[in-house]
């Protein structure tokens, strides 16, 4: 039995789960179902102006990065559960690695915005 570093991943997973549960469905409704039929609120200036605001950028960062870790964590366990236990190390690296990459991209994009 070894002392675990799971708490870091689990807390990111849990925080991401909350963020995803609260915000993702309505965002999907907006970008997927509302926007195709009425894009007036999505005028370039309006959206660009909004995203230029540092607070909005910070929010967007949270909204993207945390659910990515949420996704990585769940995917990791699903893959282990369905029989890839032998390669669990590699799976962890791939899953969390992807989330880290996504997080860095988000940070860079939003920082430079």
């Amino acid at each position: 039995m070894s002392k675990s570093n799971e708490p870091i991943f689990w807390s990111l997973f849990a925080a991401g789960g909350v963020v995803a549960a609260l915000f993702i469905p309505i965002l999907m409704v907006i970008t997927g179902l509302f926007l195709p039929f009425d894009d007036k609120p999505f005028a370039y200036e309006r959206i660009h102006g909004a995203v230029s605001h540092p607070l909005i950028r910070l929010l967007l960062f949270v909204l993207i990065a945390l659910p990515l870790f949420h996704c990585a964590h769940r995917l990791r366990f699903v893959l282990i559960d369905i029989g890839l236990k032998e390669v669990r190390g590699i799976i962890s690296v791939l899953c969390y690695g992807a989330a880290i990459v996504g997080t860095i991209i988000a940070a860079v994009l939003l920082w430079r915005f």
């Binding site: 993702i24 965002l27 660009h48 909204l63 990515l68 996504g102």
Partner: peptide, 30 residues
């Protein structure tokens, strides 16, 4: 339930793409 995370993740990627295009300028955004 666990696989819902794949869709959540994919959507986050879409959001990233959205921001990227928005940053590129009006044409890309359109």
């Amino acid at each position: 339930r666990e696989l819902t995370a794949v869709f959540v993740g994919a959507y986050c990627v879409l959001l990233l793409f959205f921001i990227y295009k928005l940053g590129k300028g009006l044409e890309a955004y359109q």
